[in-house]
Nucleic acid binder design. Structure first.
Length: 437
RNA sequence: GGAGGAUUCGCCUAGUGGCCUAUGGCGCACGAUUGGAAAUCGUGUUGGGUGUUAAAACCCUCGCGGGUUCAAAUCCCGCAUCCUCCGCCA
């Protein structure tokens, strides 16, 4: 959410920036609603002030034994006026909120133009894309050959866009998760959290999923209690400090959590229907940083490096791109995507998105900061995937596939797995006595 | 699901209709004292909004939302959260 006065003050700038992501800002409407709201507040405040004065006069006169009938009349009239103005105020406030909550964050001017990933600009590549002297298989073929996926039964249980992992596949998912959490907590300084996967409407509003993107979410509840399934741990982690004032000297806060993520994938029918790439439910290790608003750009680089380290340690070739202004998320002002190499598709595919949301979410969620000398402000929030487990598993299967049909496990996972290879017949090559093949 | 209790400023706490513009303590900040510190003394210390060049001033804020009243922390109604007990339960 934006401060409406700042938007109005920087009118043409704000309009220009929002236009880059295809949002047309109606400054006239914003100005009108703000003026109406302010005027209503002033009338209410004045009337309340007079009520107080009248009440004091009533007391004084009553003590002196004078008649207070006229004053009572006046106070009653004021009260009616207040109630009417309050009703107007509620409407203006609601309209203003609706408008403000629907305005996306302002994209950073350094971002390239464009409204799709075609316009993403490559920042760097890492690792050699593997060269195979045999015909590569995609992750679905590999996984089914190894017997570690069961898509038909997933569909039976829940329908399309769900997956079942089995045996070494399920173990691999668990090992990737454990490795990532250990990396972030032990080497990158993140505090691990275990958080609710169902959250309420204010929480979803705080990070920007609501009110505009309700159709992207799974929604549930008990009786008349409404709950949403989180699409990412960014939601609970960022909202941990919603409505709180944080001491500035305690920043940055660095949080991580492994959670299931649920997405309706409305509007993506027919896209990535195969395999683990795009599911209604997947699990992910998420990174969140809550930082001083002035430092968000530097913090973004730090967080990006943490996400990159995951892939480097796993030995997976990837590249980093800067998303164009029209393709970043609603709450973001700057976003890097990390794309991992998928041999079967002969291209890089998104595996991590690392975003600087500036104070956009902090203002929505009410995450404030206070310095020792009493200066107040809003924090900045950042989030990044570090990493989604399913897509990481896809990349491992594809990049580490062998001519004999087996898949070699990345070395960093072996201690978590207890095996170093899934053999072509789906059995594993167990690690014994610290020697593995 | 049932019964009872609680919710006041960062923490603890006083407060049964107007003098609450909320008491006192702890903590914190600044100052005095000191060679320096402790102790002591003094001053300050919820947040939000309107407003202003800045201020002043005003409004809201005693869990949340309504209501009664000229006037509500205080009375009434609803709700939320927490605690205790019973029931159910991974």
């Amino acid at each position: 959410m934006h401060d409406p006065r700042v938007l109005l003050d920087s009118a043409t700038e704000a309009v220009r920036k929002l236009a880059r992501r295809g949002y047309e800002l109606d400054l006239g409407q914003l100005d009108k609603l703000l003026t109406q709201r302010t005027s209503a507040i002033q009338r209410i405040d004045n009337a309340r002030g007079e009520v107080k004065q009248v009440a004091n006069q009533v007391q004084a006169k009553a003590r002196a034994g004078e008649d207070v009938g006229e004053l009572r009349e006046r106070a009653r009239a004021l009260k009616t006026e207040i109630q009417q103005t309050e009703e107007q105020h509620r409407q203006f406030e609601a309209d203003l909120q609706e408008l403000l909550l629907g305005i996306p964050n302002l994209p950073d001017d350094r971002l390239p133009d464009g409204n799709s990933d075609e316009f993403a600009v490559e920042v760097r590549t890492w690792g050699d894309t593997p060269i195979f002297d045999f015909e590569v298989a995609d992750h679905v073929d590999i996984g089914e050959r190894l017997g570690i996926f069961d898509f038909p039964r997933a569909t039976k249980l829940a329908g399309p866009r769900f997956a079942i992992l089995k045996g070494p596949g399920a173990q691999l998912e668990r090992a990737i998760t454990a490795f990532l959490l250990q990396l972030h907590t032990q080497r990158h300084g993140y505090i691990e959290y275990s958080v609710p996967a169902l959250v309420n409407r204010p929480t979803m509003t705080g990070t920007g999923q609501l009110p505009k993107f309700e159709e992207d979410l799974f929604k549930t509840g008990v009786d008349d209690r409404e709950l949403f399934l989180i699409p990412t741990a960014e939601v609970p982690l960022t909202n941990l400090h919603a409505g709180e004032t944080l001491p500035a000297e305690g920043l940055p806060l660095a949080y991580t959590a492994h959670t299931p993520c649920f997405r309706s994938e409305a509007g993506s029918y027919g896209r990535d229907t195969r395999g683990l790439i795009r599911l209604h439910q997947f699990s992910k290790v998420e990174l969140v940083r809550i930082v001083d608003a002035q430092r968000s750009a530097e913090e973004l680089e730090i967080m990006l490096s943490h996400a990159e380290t995951c892939l480097q340690e796993l030995g997976l070739a990837y590249r980093v791109v800067t998303l164009p202004a029209g393709d970043i998320g609603f709450s973001a002002q700057y976003t890097y995507d990390i794309e991992v190499w998928l041999p079967s598709q002969q291209r890089y595919r998104e595996i991590s998105s690392v975003s600087d949301c500036g104070s956009f979410q902090a203002r929505r969620a009410g995450i404030r900061t206070k310095t020792k000398d009493g200066k107040r402000g809003f924090a900045a929030t950042l989030n990044g995937s570090g990493l989604p487990i399913g897509r990481t598993l896809v990349a491992i299967l594809e990049q580490c596939q062998q001519a004999d049909g087996s898949v070699r496990m990345p070395g960093v996972l072996v201690p978590h797995l207890g095996f170093s290879r899934i053999k072509a017949d789906g059995t594993t090559y167990a690690v014994r006595g610290g020697v593995w093949g």
